[in-house]
Amino acid sequence: MDARTHISIQNLSVSYGRQRVLKDVSVDLPDRKVTAIIGPSGCGKTTLLRTLNRLLDGMDGVKIEGQVLVDGENIYDPKIEVTRIRQKMGLLSQKPQVLPMSIFDNIAYGPRIHGVREKAKLRQIVEQQLAAAGLWDEVKNRLHEPASRLSVGQQQRLCLARGLAVKPEIILGDEPTSALDPQSSRIVEQRLIELKADYTVIVVTHILRQARRIADYIAFLYLGELVEHGPAAEIFANPRDPRMKAYLTGEIS
């Protein structure tokens, strides 16, 4: 692959108590591509994604070993400021998590936290992000209504826009379409593909067809082990590992 590496995971192991969930995973994830992390449920996909955002920090009984380099910087360096790392990465969770506030405030929340105070500037950010998410026309007359009144599909697009409002470099999606109807799913998938022009996109998915539709790069996990990774076209055409083959043919799922 010709793309430069954006995130380099090196010898990463994670255990919850005695259970090892990720076993010595090493992989380089390419810049400005869609990487899909796939594998049967319980294989550690979500755990891998969450280590990138340091969301596992401080959880009881979690032990993390190894390194994750983002732009060459180890995010597990104790001297690093964790809020800055998280700001670099927008997170899209399984179910949309709108904040308990208005549509406007959901988008403005991040910029406000990072010090944007001027009303005009906030308005501009909100409008720009909602427009980019294709939501502006649907919500422009109800910006100050609670975001929870939006449909689930709209909520997920709002969450994506909210994440982009803090100017991340990376977008992390944890099965971001699993709660959505087919049409909303397609809209979100389409957005993710568009976003790779400016962002590195990493998506956990249990839907193989979705991975085929959106991924440029594949990382296949099985029982906590990184079994196979590489450009999507190669992997789908010529899986090398028997477990990868079995997963692609649906023998394991």
């Binding site: 955002n53 809020t83 997170l91 399984q94 991040g110 936290i113 909210r162 994440g163």
Partner: peptide, 18 residues
Amino acid sequence: VPRALREASLSLGATKWE
């Protein structure tokens, strides 16, 4: 309060107190 909601805020770079 769902954990994922807290994570949504944290992942925007908010501190715990925020």
